[in-house]
Write a protein that binds this DNA or RNA. Structure first.
Lengths: 182, 182
DNA sequence: CCTACCGATCGGTAGG
DNA sequence: CCTACCGATCGGTAGG
């Protein structure tokens, strides 16, 4: 029975999240999915090639099945922020941030994928805010929302404390409610 | 001529910041400071033992030479936030965050040092806010300030964009001015 | 999907 | 502060 691509990508994500790009090994990944290391290389030509797949999976999980654009923007905004915050609280670290910190000039494809990932996250959130805010404002708000949620993972990592994450969500929602057009 | 401890610690910090704990090698560090790898081990028994030193240096640079406690709290708060933000913008990544994400159960001394580092950062900022806020409020504000500054490094890393960092500083200062006792 | 293997590099040590 | 070395592990390949 062939090990599914999705299983490999999902396990690779756990390794990248917990150990970073340099700290995650192809041998560990092979062991996790129950095959030998050379078999991994029949699906993925390099370790680096796993990065775009891992991030694409995360993008899908972030934005799939949101209420459609006919729903109130505030409802959609709240849902996406809570979804991101819950995932980060649950997994402690953000795989995108760990990869962003860990990739460098020697892994340019991975670097491009990380950049694209966070731009998609930001643009996806900004689009939700577009009905109620000017384009530039929506972009800045989306950037700052991600900034606060990502930063809050620090306390989850060192203390297991997810209160800063919860405070960030509530503050962001209150800001949006206070300044957005109904 | 013996290579000074401070030089080694400072160079180790650059490596940890840019490559993380797993990605920084003792060989690279030795090459940077111009000695052979075994000579490093006459000063530091393990790679892990560099972590507390690196973070202690950073704590000193964060809090040394602030205006003393007789100065207005807002002046001291602004100075420490700008100092942290400028360092993070300048270096792109935060060494503490990269280490926090990279250490694990196999490096317990490093994990303890990272925890202590961020508690000191938070407590140092909270103490500055104490004259104007209740203790719990000051702690939460300090935690959230660090959260936002650390999160803003994301955009510095992926885009070289330091505007989110500047927005975070201005927002934090405005919040403090609005809610603090004169 | 496997066994077997490659050169390079890892953290760290022996011994001077 | 050095030369020389240790076993382990790295990403990746040959060949079936």
């Amino acid at each position: 029975m062939k090990t599914s691509l999705d299983t490999i990508i999902s396990e690779a994500r756990e390794l990248f999240r917990d150990h970073g790009y340099a700290g995650a090994s192809m041998q560990d990944l092979a062991t996790r999915v129950g095959i030998k290391k050379p078999s991994l290389y029949t699906r993925f030509p390099t370790k680096e090639s796993l990065v775009p797949e891992v991030l694409a999976l995360t993008t899908r999980e972030t934005f799939d099945d949101l209420p459609d654009a006919s729903a109130p923007w505030m409802e959609r905004y709240e849902m996406v922020l809570r979804r991101i915050a819950d995932t980060l609280s649950d997994r402690t670290r953000c795989v995108g941030l760990h990869l962003a910190y860990g990739i460098n000039d020697e892994t340019p494809e991975a670097a491009d994928a990380v950049r694209a990932f966070f731009r998609e996250q930001r643009d996806g959130i900004a689009r939700i805010l577009m009905p109620a805010f000017a384009k530039d404002t929506a972009h800045a708000m989306a950037t700052d929302a991600l900034t606060r949620l990502e930063g809050a993972t620090l306390w989850a990592v060192i203390d297991g404390d997810t209160q800063p994450m919860q405070r960030a969500v509530e503050a962001l929602l209150a800001d949006a409610r206070a300044s957005g057009k109904a």
